[in-house]
Nucleic acid binder design. Sequence first.
DNA 1: GTGGTCTAGACCACG
DNA 2: GTGGTCTAGACCACT
Lengths: 136, 136, 136, 136
Amino acid sequence: MSRRAPLMLQIVTGDPRPIARQITDSVKRLIAGGELQAGDGLPSVRGLAQQLSVNPNTVAKAYAELTTEGWLLSRAGLGLFVAEQRQRLSDGERARRLDEAVDRFVGDVIGLDYPSDTILGRVAEELSHYDVKKTA
Amino acid sequence: MSRRAPLMLQIVTGDPRPIARQITDSVKRLIAGGELQAGDGLPSVRGLAQQLSVNPNTVAKAYAELTTEGWLLSRAGLGLFVAEQRQRLSDGERARRLDEAVDRFVGDVIGLDYPSDTILGRVAEELSHYDVKKTA
Amino acid sequence: MSRRAPLMLQIVTGDPRPIARQITDSVKRLIAGGELQAGDGLPSVRGLAQQLSVNPNTVAKAYAELTTEGWLLSRAGLGLFVAEQRQRLSDGERARRLDEAVDRFVGDVIGLDYPSDTILGRVAEELSHYDVKKTA
Amino acid sequence: MSRRAPLMLQIVTGDPRPIARQITDSVKRLIAGGELQAGDGLPSVRGLAQQLSVNPNTVAKAYAELTTEGWLLSRAGLGLFVAEQRQRLSDGERARRLDEAVDRFVGDVIGLDYPSDTILGRVAEELSHYDVKKTA
DNA sequence: GTGGTCTAGACCACG
DNA sequence: GTGGTCTAGACCACT
């Protein structure tokens, strides 16, 4: 089934992440959370740009990144659609990115003086919103 | 007792974090992990710069950040030393930073297709190396 | 509403404070005094550097400090903007900083042989320009 | 009456001020507070250096500054003594220094969100410890 | 265009 | 020797 609904995502001006990053993250989450399913169509570059009041170049860049990362699929003349299969990174690359993310995260929170339980709980809660397997 | 040992830290060129950020993260961890204790001296700006093959300015920037954040203490003409930690941030700011870090972390790993158990396990393991309380 | 006016600030060569410090102080005052309001844009790094005849790095350093201290907000590619202020420091840290500032101030003026009335009057006058509550 | 007592001053390692500055400030305060009176002798450079566990050069430098600023008087072969008259700066210089100190002080406290009453009260209290005239 | 980072090299104050 | 500051110029990512 193929739908083409306006994406429910918003850009927060206070967010330190670049806008394109906010878009890619949001789309990834919508897909990971099951709100966008394989085959679903995405808003046009111009449409989303207008909806979010950002530069079309920024949206195009975000879409391009999502496409090269395997989240989206371009069908000539039709537009972009959520891809069936998004596994694309090599195991080594995945592991490296996980390490890096953990590193950065721990570096961010290590000085905040929260007990590890609290930190892990918050991460678990956030992860639970998405369609990730609980165990391998 | 005051020591001044060569820090066991390394800069990874593939890491997207800026070099200064890698340094601050590493030092924070050494302190949080108890490997560097209050009063211990740090390698000189020039020394560490040479050891890591980076520009002294970059090390100085990292040290300056750690100093203004309260991790280090500068004694003119003598060098930098590990400070006794105090609580520097308001509760609101701490909470905001935790939220931000969690958000970013989840955004980073959500697409890697790891089961949440694996992700949480890696974070827990990493946290266990440091002097953080386990529970509140 | 977002403005981007040339800041009315000047660098005094005789001032012992480092240039970057003079800039951060001036900007803080403009914000605290209400002359710069949340959302207002700041002069570009290069622009202000030229206006003040200092190196862009020096301005960038000042801006970076103001950003990490929560006064400014950086939007990539767009520039820097005045943030809405939040309480970032813990009560203990605030108290410590007040103590330190008072100590230093008294140390600076104690030898100038001004009557305490004059000193307090000058401070009061200076403070009155800003958006500080008069009483708790 | 001429005494030569060990100065009751101490160096705090955590203090960000350079050691020489801590010494000059302390001596100024002892004089301003009346604990050291005109004609009193000061400890020898070597003696004070040993007492404070600092480099004799540092003490010598502090004494030299106090002498050129008119707080101390050198009597050949006898040592240093508290001067009778310490007014030495031109009115313009005094005014400039007061302005600068006020500037710096306000810059330091403006972001701490204390009501001006609190700030002024703390300054007044601190000033009251010294031998300053209340009014002109 | 914007800010952010890094390198290179100089000069200062401090001990 | 130490850290701190400033200048100069390059390159990057973002809009």
